[in-house]
Design a protein around this nucleic acid. Structure first.
Length: 183
DNA sequence: GCGACAG
DNA sequence: ATCTTGTCGC
């Protein structure tokens, strides 16, 4: 399931789109509206969006096998980004995909065809589409998923958009529903 | 002290 | 993220 949040003043619309694997066919769409209770502060996205997404997840009629969030996982100064936070508190395998690096340095592997994000002398994430800056994304493990698996799964969900189709669809649906419900 | 800073 | 027209690039 891909999840994203769209905002309108103090209201937050969370949308989750469930996909089949590995066919990647859209199965179901869920959404929920909540009030925002925390401002956006870099490195503290969990307190704003994490709390909202967790509330959304706990009210679902089912439990996703895997969650993809538009945020960082362990590629975070405290090794606990919003994707990690969400996966941890809902006990769900989670992958974080962001559009910009928040910490660490980009290192091209000598023997692998992978561009890693290193921090504290460890690979905490990977840069995909690193050859094209306008399309590059940062992938990192959120919870119960290894970096290797996070990279493999994310690559398989990349289509014609910058973000994985799972997140792209959640983002679009959120924007569309926001107009219908909160405008 | 200065700059950078996911969504 | 959101506010917003035209516009540069693939």
């Amino acid at each position: 399931m891909g999840v994203d949040v769209a905002y309108k003043d103090e209201n937050a619309l969370t949308v989750g789109v469930l996909f089949s694997w590995p066919e990647l066919k859209q199965q179901n769409i869920f959404y929920r509206v909540d009030k925002v209770h925390f401002p956006y502060i870099p490195t503290l996205l969990s307190f704003r969006e994490g709390t909202i997404i967790i509330r959304f997840l706990k009210n679902l009629p089912m439990k996703p096998n895997l969650l993809m969030v538009n945020a960082h996982g362990i590629a975070h100064p405290l090794k606990c980004g919003c994707a990690s936070y969400i996966g941890l508190l809902t006990d769900t395998p989670t992958i974080g995909v962001a559009k910009r690096v928040i910490c660490g340095e980009i290192i091209k592997s000598k023997d692998e065809n992978i561009t890693y994000l290193q921090y504290d002398n460890k690979n905490i994430g990977a840069i995909l589409n690193s050859d094209k800056k306008s399309k590059e994304i940062v992938v990192s493990p959120g919870h119960r998923v290894s970096l290797k698996t996070a990279i493999q799964i994310t690559i398989k969900t990349l289509k014609s958009y910058r973000l994985p189709i799972i997140l792209e669809e959640a983002h679009r649906k959120a924007a569309k529903l926001l107009l219908e419900l909160l405008n």
